[in-house]
Write a protein that binds this DNA or RNA. Structure first.
Lengths: 343, 343
DNA sequence: TTAAAAACGTAGACCGATCTACAAGAAAAC
DNA sequence: GTTTTCTTGTAGATCGGTCTACGTTTTTAA
């Protein structure tokens, strides 16, 4: 009725090869109890009919060999690097990866994850999901789950995160070594409550710790913002309105850093002569020479592969939660320089 | 065995409500033949058990209410705009969207699309797929299909594309109006054969047409390249090696334009004073003020919604192929300026 | 040579829904 | 008061696989 031709099924193959459906299934799964002769015959029939097993039907009893990747914002190029890593590892293990996006808060996230579970995906990778830990635990109870970008350990799910404490320390130490003292930090505040395991919380904590360690507890300056272009731009106006504005900012994410840089550009204030800016994520655009953003690289590819390894282990039965912390590195480019008021 | 709790099934609901499975199914589908009393009772049971129907099982007979979006490169921020549009339209019609990526050529694309068909997705959106038209026809025979970014019309599938002829004309006319005559064009050449319906072919054709229309047929200069950062950078070296290098380039895509800009930056040659650069796609980074790339906007969101409309029509039975052409607009920013050798 | 073990193949239940047929009771038409 | 038509609900086949149980045959061990 739809102009589409119907696919060959396992029964068609069985009939064509003159064997039982169970036999074909065995060949398909590489199960025990198949002679070479029969195997060959069945495979020839599958070839002849252009047979492909229905993942749907397989999933009804066994595994679906599908992993779901949940993402909040695909336009953040850092997540596409994570996905590269996830895909590389998953495909080498025979899993298909499907990506689902939901950017409108907890309810939509819930719906997307339900949709993945409804399709019996074998495991889930959640990239920087919303919600409290109880929510993640609940998801972990429904399917093997790995959370990327939130600090662990979690109950009933694994976590892979960048060591955000160390990342913030790298940033602050770098700025201090350039003579900066009034170093601000942009902390993301979204619609949902900030959990202590979320990167924005940990990066802010790491920032405070590093400031204190450098004897700058009086200069601690956490500005509530949003981690996107507009948030970064708005923060600039907010900071420059001050009597003694900061001389540098740890923006928490590249997206906000781009907004900061854009606003300074519009204002005609060259960077880093007037101000130093550090991002976080090492997104694609950060390495454009016109941008040359100093930022923290999280080795996203490795985080992706590691998360997938954990996930497959979990699918295969591991229960104890794993919590990996990947060490970040500082990419010093050209948005940081000596403090303008050094002295 | 896996620490996961099992979900309630339709049988559980039926038992809990004291009715037959068929009755629950009817309520689920809103089918005819259900009394208000029973409907209420069943819905209460579903609520009480936290029941969610298995999309897998539903898909075995009826629709799966899932659309598959095939993408070659997620890190291209233009495709994420397309996806926004697709999702918005799909979700308003009750379809779930899953994204599959495959970046290693036709074979991997084939595998990804098969994986989608194996999961009985109701329809497919292919964003700038590889392969000859026969390949797309084959896919269209397996499931309702809409191709985004390739020019139509196609046999057995719909197409939605930007009017690349018009886009190239906008670019060339703009450059000519600035006094440029030696305008080069980067044409993408990949591993696979370039089909005439692919954007790289149409943009190149449009470029040639526009050059001829402007009386510049002798200046036509198509440089074979790759539409990514490295390709753009390499093209700069290639062009500057010439005795009389071009004064402007229509790079065909923003990704390549970024590479061109980066290379000029490295060489210390300011743009647009020395050279004019035009991209295509209006990717995110193009609007960063430090970049300010003059480019062509394809209204990706609208293309996405339109593609989804077509797809749903097709799922619901339409046979005649549709081919939509969306009009692009030129975004003039600061990488284009008067020709340096004007006169 | 015979018993035990391994190899091979099949039948049929099962996964969780949809969908067609049909039965029983209620309402409407004659 | 009977026949016809709706309405409401159920039984059971079906989708395309997996998986357990079991019957044959062949191989190995005793």
């Amino acid at each position: 009725m739809n102009g589409q031709q119907k696919r060959a099924t396992i029964s068609d193959v069985a009939e064509h090869a003159g064997v039982s459906r169970a036999a074909v299934s065995k060949v398909l799964r590489g199960a025990y109890g198949v002679s070479d002769v029969m195997k060959k015959r069945v495979e020839e029939s599958m070839e002849a009919l252009g047979y492909r097993p229905s993942a749907l039907a397989r999933g009804m009893r066994g595994r679906s060999f599908t992993l779901g990747v949940f993402v909040v914002d695909l336009s953040n190029t850092f997540v596409t690097v994570l996905i590269e890593g996830i895909r590389a590892e998953a495909e080498s293990r025979g899993y298909q990866v499907f990506i689902g996006e939901a950017d409108m808060g907890l309810a939509q996230q819930q719906q997307m994850i339900d949709a993945m579970l409804d399709r019996k995906m074998d495991g889930l990778v959640l990239i920087a999901p919303f919600g409290p830990e109880e929510e993640l635990e609940r998801i972990g109870r429904s399917a093997p789950t790995v959370v990327l970008g939130r600090h662990g350990p979690g109950q009933g799910y694994d976590t892979v995160a960048s060591d955000d404490i160390a990342g913030s320390a790298l940033i602050v130490d770098h700025l201090v070594s350039l003579g900066h003292r009034r170093i601000a930090h942009l902390k993301h505040v979204g619609r949902e409550k900030n959990e202590s395991t979320m990167p924005q919380s940990v990066r802010a904590d790491g920032y405070v710790q590093a400031m204190v360690r450098n004897g700058l507890e009086k200069e601690v300056d956490v500005i509530e913002s949003r981690w996107n272009h507009e948030g970064g731009a708005a923060a600039v106006d907010f900071m420059l309105k001050r009597d003694t504005p900061p001389t540098a900012v740890h923006t928490g994410t590249d997206m906000a850093a781009f907004g900061v840089l854009a606003r300074f550009f519009e204002l005609g204030l060259p960077i880093p002569e007037n101000f130093s800016v550090v991002g976080y994520d090492n997104a694609r655009a950060a390495s454009l020479p016109q941008v040359a953003l100093t930022t923290v690289d999280q080795s996203g590819f490795e985080m992706g592969t590691l998360a997938t390894k954990f996930l497959v282990e979990r699918i295969e039965g591991r229960q104890e939660p794993q919590a990996a912390l990947v060490q970040p590195t500082l990419m010093i480019r050209r948005t940081t320089g000596p403090a303008p008021d050094a002295g």
